[in-house]
Amino acid sequence: MVSSRQDSPTAGDHERCLVIQPNASLTPRQGRLFFVSMCAVSFGIAMLFALQGFWVVLPFAGLEMAALGAGLYWSMRGNTYREVIRVEGDRVLFESGRAGPDERREYQRAWAQVVLEPRVVRNHAPRLLLRSHGRDCEFGRCLTAKEKREVAQRLKRWLNEPVSRAAPAT
């Protein structure tokens, strides 16, 4: 999934920014809602038995809900991963990470290339690469083939814009 700040009314004319994130079919709110509803059902059943004196069901329900919560948290943790690509003046900045940037790279815009490399392996989507000085940096792995093509086109367009247009106002 890709979002761009290029079209944002608050973004300056010089600012070119792409945010890439994995597709998450469960939003945090939906995840919480699902977990709470499961807890309500599971603890509701366990409480009914506990009120009859059969309290042993309760700790098992608790253990299971803890396992479900941990599983949901672990899986949804991956949804917070972001890759941010900024084209600012003569620089291209690449940042990736979860809560904040865990990794940061900077390229000279004049040397940076965006390459969409087809995969030899059948049925695999092409690789999206930032290439500079003979070194590649793969990004956008969480994108579909169609999204990769769109990102490649957009980044190529930004990189090819005259530097003066993209230069920050002083």
Partner: peptide
Amino acid sequence: AYLLIAVMPVLAGAVTMLLT
């Protein structure tokens, strides 16, 4: 899977009570 999550603690509790 929803059903499994809902009812498995009941089985676990029942057999544990047999044990105790």
